[in-house]
Simulated assay, not measured.
Amino acid sequence: MTAKNQTPEATGQVADAYAGNWVDRLAPAATRPYLRLSRADRPIGTWLLLLPCWWGLTLAMLSDGQAGWHDLWIFIGCGLGAFLMRGAGCTWNDITDRHIDGSVARTASRPIPSGQVTVRGALIWMAVQALIAFGILLTFNTAAIVLGILSLLPVAVYPFAKRFTWWPQVFLGLAFNWGALLAWTAHTGRLETPAVILYLAGIAWTLFYDTIYAHQDAEDDALIGVKSTARLFGDNSPRWLRWFLVATVSLMALAVILAVPDARMTALLVALCGPWVMGWHMQGQMRRLRLDDTARLLHLFRSNRDAGLLPVPFFAVACLL
């Protein structure tokens, strides 16, 4: 069998990874199973973890009108930390889900159920990623370090949520949007109301995009008894998704209003364009939604990188006004 004609199972590729991703093309063969375990071949999760960090940082800079070289490090450090902690979190998720993943078509090719990585090897790899991320966290202020340590609780709980609640996406939202709290605090030295409201906006956004994502596995999940909002909402999902869209935009707009001083009306108006254009993108996803088209569901889920990125330049430009 030639490499060109090999199946994903034969090459070790994961079924829902990007075709021609850098891991499959460029990474040394010995590292590929571990990078796949960290989802390095599927960068969308890193973006979804990172973007709330950038929301929190830019909105904090807008709130107090201050920016310095340390903010550039927070910006970069959040990027590195998101890559590492997303990798550690996915490794933990795959360790806990190794028996379930083998029963689901989309996940059976993952490194642990396919036998590419042992559980012991995965635990060591998870610890390495988490320790490097902790080293980055230690460069932030004390309040941000405490928040970073507390973030491990929702990360640890999330993989088990689908076993006891129909709303595991809430637990994913609690974990994935923690960066909004952490980055705000890394800039200001304290946690404040606008950051909490921004965090809630992120959770609503996670409910939106991960319900779309979960519809890919709804049939397999029903067979093995795994719960999700996709199964809970069923054909009523579009109505729920619209409510999550409204909640995302409204809460983010409220966070902006609370963060920006009244005297800076021009900055406020520019910053408010951020949640508006994000909501416009999400509404575009709704127009293209087809619950029975798994390829389209995956495409729409991935497009949330662009949706979540849209507020960042508006917040950044508003900082200059």
Rank of each mutant, 00 (worst) to 15 (best):
T2H: 14
Q6D: 13
E9M: 06
T11G: 13
V23M: 10
A27T: 07
A29L: 13
P33M: 08
P33C: 12
Y34K: 10
R42E: 01
W47M: 07
L51I: 13
W54V: 04
G68C: 05
G68R: 03
W73N: 01
I74D: 00
G77K: 06
G77R: 02
L84Y: 10
M85L: 14
A88E: 03
G89R: 08
I95L: 11
D97G: 05
V104Y: 09
A108E: 12
S109W: 06
S114M: 05
V117D: 01
V119L: 11
A122T: 02
M126L: 15
Q129Y: 11
L138T: 14
S151W: 07
P154L: 06
K162S: 01
W167N: 00
Q169N: 09
V170N: 00
L172H: 04
L174E: 00
L182W: 01
A183C: 02
E192V: 08
Y199P: 03
L200F: 15
A204D: 07
F208A: 02
F208M: 06
T211C: 04
E219R: 14
G225R: 11
V226Q: 09
K227W: 05
S228H: 07
T229M: 15
L232R: 13
R239L: 10
L241S: 08
R242K: 13
F244W: 15
L245Q: 11
V246P: 02
T248E: 02
S250H: 01
V256K: 06
V256D: 04
I257P: 08
R264I: 01
R264F: 05
L268R: 13
L269I: 12
V270R: 03
P275I: 00
W276A: 15
W276K: 01
W280N: 03
D293S: 06
T294E: 12
L300M: 08
F301D: 03
P311V: 06
P311K: 10
